[in-house]
Amino acid sequence: MSAFLQTILTPDFVFTVIRVMTPILFAALSCMVFTKGGIDSIGIEGIMLICSMTGPVFSYLTQSAIGGVIGAIVTGILLAFLFGYVTLQLKAVEILAGIALNTMASGLTIFVIYYVAGEKGSTQSLFSPVVPNIEIPVLSSIPILGDILSGHNILTYLAIILTFVLAYVFYSTPLGLRIRSVGENAQAAASVGINVMKYKYITLAIAGTLAGLGGAFMSMGYVSFFSKEMIAGRGFIGMAAEAMGMGNPFGIFLASGLFGIADSLAVRLQLLNFPTQLIQTIPYMITIIAISIYSYKRSKREKKL
């Protein structure tokens, strides 16, 4: 037990949690925006995967990390628009369009990297600049706190900042109010003169940007190259985190943190000779437990209404 506590009660462990939760936070924030705008977010996994491929590719082509991140964001927006066009204008079923997007992403990414890098597994043979980690001046010199909070990737800090920005936008600006009203009841919004399509596409652009950043973090921050299927379910975990956080940016932040803890714990416990099979189920058990609690609370709240 003491070995267990020694493993998790370290600044290093908390640092790891923040790194692990970053892509989940981006995914969850993206899902939150989709959901607030009344659009299904099941395509998030595929959008993130394609963005995690275009990031290093554009970074390689422009030889600049900013070029790569912009490439990933633009890809994210275009894919979200594509999803929006197919579901909003052509009236395709959202779930089916999302699944199609996810399936397409697996094959398309491999096709493109083979064309660009001559390899089918990864872009490791391309020299693509990455987004750096940064030490925060004053903070890094504070004992423990500095070890935990300083030295993360720029995109990690961006994810945290964006949590606050989105909270402000959605609850304190007319734009946020209109997106939410379009999402909750498009006809009612239209009746008071809101251009529904315009706000749907603004929603898609914001959600696509966040998914693009999440993808870029995976291949330009977490590791320095794209490899096939590298999102590995983080988009779907993001959907669960969004549900668990009840659509509230800060709730989502905490939920992402919980998944970060579960994942980091799974990594550490293996080294303490806990049975591997059991440990690998931890993140999923937490998902099920958390969603059960969430659903229970929601059903109780709905009964009250």
Binding site: V20, P23, M218, F225, M230, A232, L271, T276, Q280
Partner: peptide, 18 residues
């Protein structure tokens, strides 16, 4: 350690760091 995936590069990195 076992990653529990053949594709998850990021988790592979975490395993190695640990």
């Amino acid at each position: 350690s076992y990653i529990g995936s053949w594709d998850d590069t990021a988790k592979g990195k975490e395993m190695a760091i640990a």
